[in-house]
Design a protein around this nucleic acid. Structure first.
Length: 420
RNA sequence: GUGGGUGUAGUUCAGUGGUUAGAGCGCCAGAUUGUGGCUCUGGAAGUCGUGGGUUCAACUCCCAUCACCCACCCCA
């Protein structure tokens, strides 16, 4: 039986790597423009980090983590999201002692969730994320939202919907939870079994249940935005002003509650309309209690994660993925045994001069070498045959117009450089 | 985790109980003497996902298993 890549994983092949590199370059540039520096944290962490950070009532922790005991009997978990590891590193290295705010991004971190793969969902996927620590006010929320939108804009994406909401803080959320539970209590038997369980553990999650009967019930549920305390309410209002100021159209969606427990105040999602329906491309929000929960000081934070595979999907949906550019510029063809060594030599000299040059590794006929070079899409072919060798010359053919010229071998590198 | 569909050359697919399993594209080579794209000709390439079973005979029928696709759940 042929060994395959594990279920829910994909190989990134050489022919598609240019897309990843293109996306990564834009992400790096925009993060840098906003003053964020890269952090790289381990692919695995102690399980406890996610139980404490992400929250043990979440689906992620309850049923989707890759958790195992290592040989020292430590419980290890492959990262199921990006924020917890960044926060752990912040606390462990006391980065909060540096000038605030501390701004960092992670680029295409592998993320693992044990789920059944389907459209736009893998067991291993990659996320870019930004985290800003130490800012209480909504300017940081606005900064990360605007930055990710700028990235998506530079990638050429259109028609993405931005949804925001506020889910309050430990001061006001209990009041809302109480009101929500009172409202739901009479309908409790009519909720789906899962929501009945959520009722006690995490009633907010009932709001984004996809079951029709639950949605009917929650449609007229109390609106969390009406329960926000003064602090949360003013934060949300000021955020809307900031986004509005930059001309950003966002929709307020009180149903967004997010699947991670650490969020406070702002939560947001960017969704795309794939042919198969709405798919979240980016999710994030504010997590003011998380740093303390992980063992650090009282330090607010806000950030997001965005899935690179889903960006690629959306680029394909919109038909805007760029073509791969030419990989090799010049090919040195040789004729006969005596031509091989000089061709090899010239090819290496061209590379040393900074040109993308290749030659025939497979001892093929001249015709086959031309066919191969054409498939590579090279602009120039240098021909090293018996005639040229005798004269100490190189014949250069321009593959775009078919023109040929002969130059002296010692000028060949310079000549090719100017022709490219 | 639950339900539905699919699995045949590198790839997209055809085949359907009965000889040596086919096609397009791709790959390799040739079309007189040192030259790509177009055309023509030829060639290589498959233990028909894997393991069992039924049968004189299985790519074809049955069972199991694995993977992929889709839906649910949830999410990026």
């Amino acid at each position: 039986m042929e060994i395959q890549s594990p279920k829910g994983t994909r190989d990134m092949l050489p022919k598609e790597s240019h897309l990843w590199q293109w996306i990564e370059q834009i992400m790096r540039e925009e993060a840098a423009l906003a003053g964020y520096r890269e952090i790289r944290t381990p692919v695995f962490e102690y399980t406890e980090l996610f139980e404490r950070g992400v929250g043990d009532t979440t689906d992620i922790v309850q049923k989707e983590m890759y958790t195992f005991l290592d040989k020292g009997e430590r419980s290890i978990t492959l990262k199921p999201e990006g924020t917890a590891g960044a926060v752990r590193a912040l606390v462990e290295h006391k980065l909060y002692a540096e000038p605030l705010p501390v701004k960092m991004y992670y680029l295409n971190n592998p993320i693992f969730r044990y789920e059944n793969p389907q459209h736009g969902r893998l067991r291993e996927h990659h996320q870019f994320g930004m985290e800003c620590f130490g800012v209480k006010g909504p300017t940081a929320d606005a900064e990360v939202i605007l930055t990710v939108l700028k990235i998506l804009g530079r990638l050429g994406m259109k028609d993405l919907a931005v949804k925001i909401n506020s889910i309050g803080c430990p001061v006001c959320r209990p009041n809302y939870q109480k009101a929500l539970k009172e409202y739901l209590f009479d309908n409790l038997p009519n909720l789906c079994p899962q929501c009945q369980e959520r009722f006690n553990r995490n009633p907010l999650r009932i709001l984004d249940c996809k079951e029709k009967k639950c949605q009917l019930i929650t449609r007229d549920a109390p609106n969390i935005l009406q329960f926000l305390c003064e602090d949360c309410d003013s934060h949300f209002e000021r955020l809307k002003v900031l986004l509005n100021e930059r001309g950003l159209k966002v929709s307020i969606d009180p149903q967004i509650v997010r699947g991670l427990d650490y969020y406070t105040k702002t939560v947001f999602e960017i969704v795309m309309n794939s042919p198969r329906g709405e798919l979240a491309l980016c999710g994030g929000g504010r997590y003011d209690g998380l740093v303390k929960k992980i063992g650090g000081p009282e330090l607010p934070g806000v950030g997001f994660g965005i899935g690179t595979e889903r960006i690629l999907l959306e680029l394909q949906n919109q038909g805007i993925a760029p073509e791969e550019q030419r990989v090799t510029d010049v090919f040195i063809a040789s004729l006969g045994e005596e031509g091989r060594l000089p061709a090899f030599d010239l090819c290496m000299d061209l590379r040393n001069a900074g040109l993308r040059a290749d030659w025939d590794h497979l001892d093929r006929s001249l015709k086959a070498q031309f066919r191969y070079a054409d498939k590579l899409g090279v602009k120039l072919i240098g021909i090293m045959g018996g005639d040229e060798l005798q004269k100490g010359a190189l014949r250069i053919k321009n593959m775009l117009d078919g023109q040929e010229k002969e130059v002296s071998l010692k000028d060949a590198v310079q000549e090719i450089k100017t022709l490219l």
